[in-house]
């Protein structure tokens, strides 16, 4: 199995698809990279030659922010928001939705599993 940019090992899929297993590479980027390097998207990842793998890796590193670098920059952006005490930063700190969604119900992705409060109904009365 070919290794691309460190840890990622795409599998038996077409490279067009296999490339998308990299963080920061989607359909658009994958197709663009392959077109630019004139490699057929339908080739299976295992059938790629070593030098082709190397050129793809080099191309992605050079033209896009992917994998570790992208993860780092995302975290830095969030850290910046947290640091300056702006509204979005506060939402990140609290683990609540950042983009103004409702939190009366739902918002489970950000809030995590429900924490049941005992006797909630009785207390309200």
């Amino acid at each position: 199995m070919p290794r691309l940019l460190g840890v990622d090992i795409p599998n038996e899929k077409r490279i067009e698809t296999a490339l998308q297993y990299l963080y920061g590479v989607g359909q658009h980027t994958a197709r663009k990279a392959l077109a630019e390097l004139s490699i057929k998207g339908s080739v299976r990842a295992k059938d790629l030659k070593d030098d082709e793998v190397a050129t793809i890796a080099a191309y992605l590193e050079q033209h896009f922010v992917v994998e570790g670098a992208l993860r780092r920059s995302n975290l830095q952006n969030i850290a910046r928001l947290k640091e300056i005490y702006c509204y979005r930063g506060l939402r990140h700190r609290r683990g609540l939705p950042v983009h103004g969604q409702r939190t009366r119900c739902n918002a489970r992705t950000r809030k995590g599993p429900r924490k049941t409060v005992a006797n909630k109904k009785i207390l309200r009365k």
Binding site: R80, E83, I84, C86
Partner: peptide
């Protein structure tokens, strides 16, 4: 400096 581009109300 980091706050440039944000709005006053955000703080």
């Amino acid at each position: 400096e980091d706050m440039v581009g944000h709005r006053l109300g955000e703080f």
